[in-house]
């Protein structure tokens, strides 16, 4: 039988992979994908806690749907920015995007 702990551990693993991806990938699209992993880790947490701790209501599930929607919108924005950068510089390495500084 699956317990709450299993879900939490799965979510921790996903979250860590996501963080690792965000911090280490050079490719901006890779960073975006890792961000999606983080979001999903959180979604799993939400649903799991909702299911196990307050089975009577579905607030957690509703929030998850919101998060998915918002995350999608953010990804679209991110992809659009990356596309614009690609057109300008012909490459999308995150470590070379360093114009916004002193």
């Amino acid at each position: 039988m699956l317990s709450l702990m299993h879900f939490v551990i799965l979510s921790v693993i996903l979250f860590s992979i996501g963080i690792f991806g965000v911090l280490t990938r050079r490719n901006a699209i890779g960073i975006l994908m890792s961000l999606e992993l983080i979001f999903n880790a959180i979604n799993i947490n939400m649903v799991a806690f909702s299911k196990f701790l307050t089975p009577d209501n579905i607030y957690g599930e509703i929030f998850t749907i919101f998060i998915i929607t918002v995350a999608t919108a953010e990804s679209v924005l991110g992809l659009a920015i990356i596309l614009a950068i690609y057109r300008m510089r012909q490459k999308i390495y995150a470590d070379e995007m360093n114009l916004m500084k002193w």
Partner: peptide, 17 residues
């Protein structure tokens, strides 16, 4: 402190984490 602002988004993320 301005030298900590590298302009690289991943450095910022690292500091946040």
């Amino acid at each position: 402190l301005k030298f900590t602002i590298t302009g690289r988004v991943q450095n910022y993320a690292l500091i946040i984490v």
